[in-house]
Amino acid sequence: MSLSTHVLDTALGVPAAGMSLRLRDADGAVLAEGTTNADGRYGELPAVGAGVFVLRFETAAYFALSGRPCFYPSVEVRFEVTDPASHHHVPLLVSPFGFSSYRGS
């Protein structure tokens, strides 16, 4: 199964470049970690099987880069893969005082 993510800074209307993230499995084992590229994407998430996973986004460090305070110092998106043959896209829409996620395509 392929897995991808994309982070958009909705306060500025731009991709969230340089945001650190980490993918963990349900047991807490780190499967991948790095930062988003200029387009707000992290394109090298590993293929995973069925199970529960957590993407953790380090929002405080990202907002600090532009001198903006934030209410949520990190955002964790917990999701379940039930069909490992399908592509799973986990986007994050973020601002200093709110966030949203959904299953993308």
Score class of each variant (00 low, 15 high):
72 Y>D: 08
2 S>L: 14
92 L>P: 11
79 F>V: 06
43 G>K: 03
21 L>K: 07
22 R>D: 01
1 M>F: 06
51 G>P: 03
98 G>I: 08
104 G>C: 03
25 D>T: 09
84 P>Q: 13
16 A>R: 03
72 Y>S: 01
32 A>Y: 02
33 E>V: 05
9 D>M: 11
56 R>Y: 04
63 F>R: 00
17 A>I: 01
84 P>D: 15
75 V>G: 02
79 F>Q: 04
38 A>N: 09
84 P>F: 12
85 A>K: 12
85 A>C: 09
2 S>P: 01
10 T>Y: 00
72 Y>C: 05
60 A>T: 07
95 S>M: 01
79 F>E: 03
33 E>L: 00
89 H>L: 08
46 P>H: 09
100 S>H: 12
6 H>C: 09
38 A>W: 06
3 L>G: 13
29 A>P: 03
95 S>L: 03
11 A>S: 15
39 D>S: 14
79 F>I: 02
91 P>T: 04
86 S>W: 11
100 S>N: 00
65 L>P: 01
102 Y>E: 15
46 P>T: 07
46 P>Q: 07
2 S>H: 04
33 E>R: 01
77 V>W: 00
75 V>T: 09
94 V>F: 00
100 S>P: 02
101 S>L: 00
6 H>G: 07
24 R>C: 08
67 G>T: 08
11 A>F: 06
68 R>M: 15
84 P>S: 13
60 A>D: 01
100 S>G: 07
52 V>G: 09
25 D>M: 09
29 A>L: 10
73 P>C: 09
53 F>Q: 06
93 L>M: 05
77 V>R: 02
48 V>W: 02
24 R>V: 13
52 V>A: 11
71 F>Y: 13
1 M>S: 10
91 P>H: 03
83 D>E: 15
6 H>D: 14
57 F>Q: 10
